[in-house]
C-alpha cells in the first residue's frame, strides 16, 4: 500500500481536469529542485551520512503513524529526526567512530521499521517506500513537498550566513557563539521533511541520489553557497524532467530511471581503471 493521501479541498476538481501526466511531472520537477538544494547544504556541512540515516530512519515513524491513523509524513519526520539525534548523542557520549554509530543507528531503525509492519498488522508496500511511485503521486504529496520547500527557504533565508560560517569553519562558528547545535537540528528537521515528502515520488533510496549527484558537478565552479544551491537545483530539475520524459517514452518506472540518470551525471570525465 502506498502512503495514504489526505484530501486537499477545492484542488480535486482542478487535478481531475489536468492531463494525467502533469501532476507527476510537477512533482518530479519540484523534487528535482528541492532535493539538490538541500543536498548542497548537507554536502557543504558534511552531513550527508546523517541524511542517509534520516532517510532510512523514517520507516518506524511511518509504520506507527499509519497504525494510529495520523499523517504518516509526520511520523516519518519525527522518527528520522529522532534517529539523527540518537546517533549524535551516542557518538558524543562515548566518543565512538561517527560513521560506525551512524550506520548502526541507520540499520537499527530500518530493522525496527520492517519489524513493526507485521507486528502492527500493516499493509505497507516496502518497494514503494524504497523506490517510490511517481506516477501515483497525488496533491497531498505535492503539498508536502511544497511545505518542505518552504521550510528549506525559511532556514536558508533566516540563517544563510550562519550556515556558511558553520560549513567553512565549524570551530570558528562555535567560537563566535553561533548556535551550532540548533542550526544542525534545524537542518536535520528540514532534511527529514524533504526526504519524507520526496519519498512518494522517488523513494527513500533514490532521494539520496538526488541529494548528492546534482550537487557535485558544479560545486567547485561557483563562488557562493547560494549559487551552488541554485545550480544544483537547476541540474536536479533537468535530471528529473529528462528522467520522467524518458520513462514515459520507454515505458519504464521514472524513479529508478532518475536514479540511474544521477549516476550518469557523474560518469563523464571519470577515469575508470
Amino acid at each position: 500500500m502506498p502512503l495514504p493521501r489526505l484530501p486537499i479541498w477545492g484542488i480535486t476538481a482542478v487535478v481531475d481536469a489536468m492531463p494525467w501526466w502533469l501532476l507527476p511531472l510537477l512533482m518530479a520537477l519540484l523534487v528535482g529542485a528541492v532535493c539538490p538544494a538541500t543536498g548542497t547544504l548537507l554536502v557543504t556541512q558534511r552531513r550527508l551520512l546523517q541524511a542517509n540515516l534520516i532517510a532510512h530512519a523514517v520507516l518506524p515513524g511511518l509504520a506507527v503513524a499509519l497504525a494510529v491513523g495520523i499523517d504518516p509524513a509526520l511520523g516519518g519526520v519525527v522518527s528520522g529526526v529522532l534517529g539523527a539525534l540518537l546517533a549524535e548523542r551516542l557518538q558524543r557520549r562515548d566518543g565512538r567512530s561517527h560513521e560506525a554509530v551512524m550506520n548502526t543507528v541507520l540499520a537499527g531503525f530500518l530493522g525496527l521499521g520492517v519489524l513493526l509492519i507485521p507486528l502492527l498488522n500493516l499493509r505497507l508496500d516496502l518497494e514503494s517506500v524504497l523506490f517510490g511511485d511517481l506516477l501515483a503521486v497525488g496533491t497531498t504529496d505535492l503539498g508536502r513537498t511544497l511545505v518542505a520547500a518552504a521550510s528549506l527557504l525559511l532556514l536558508v533565508g533566516w540563517s544563510y550566513r550562519s550556515l556558511v560560517f558553520l560549513g567553512v569553519d565549524p570551530d570558528g562558528a562555535a567560537a563566535v557563539g553561533l548556535p551550532v547545535r540548533s542550526l544542525r537540528l534545524a537542518l536535520a528537521c528540514v532534511t527529514a521533511l524533504v526526504v519524507v515528502s520526496a519519498m512518494a515520488a522517488v523513494g527513500v533510496v533514490l532521494v539520496i541520489a538526488l541529494l548528492c549527484a546534482p550537487v557535485l558537478p558544479g560545486l567547485q565552479q561557483v563562488a557562493s553557497l547560494r549559487a551552488a544551491m541554485v545550480r544544483a537545483s537547476l541540474v536536479g530539475v533537468a535530471l528529473s524532467g529528462a528522467g520522467f520524459a524518458l520513462a514515459l517514452l520507454l515505458n519504464l518506472p521514472p524513479g529508478p530511471l532518475i536514479g540511474v540518470a544521477c549516476l550518469g551525471l557523474l560518469l563523464p570525465g571519470a577515469k575508470l581503471r
Binding site: 557543504t44 558534511r46 550566513r161 550562519s162 556558511v164 560560517f165 560549513g167 567553512v168 569553519d169 565549524p170 570551530d171 570558528g172 562558528a173 567560537a175 563566535v176 553561533l178 560545486l219 567547485q220 561557483v222 563562488a223 557562493s224 553557497l225 549559487a227 551552488a228
Partner: peptide, 25 residues
C-alpha cells in the same frame, strides 16, 4: 580566535570577501 588551518574547509564555495565578512556574523 583564529583556528588552525586544518580545521577550515578550504574548498567551501566562498569568496575572500564573504569569508572576511563572516567575522561580523
Amino acid at each position: 580566535l583564529m583556528p588552525q588551518r586544518g580545521r577550515i574547509d578550504w574548498s567551501f564555495p566562498i569568496t575572500v570577501r564573504e569569508m572576511v565578512a563572516l567575522g561580523q556574523v
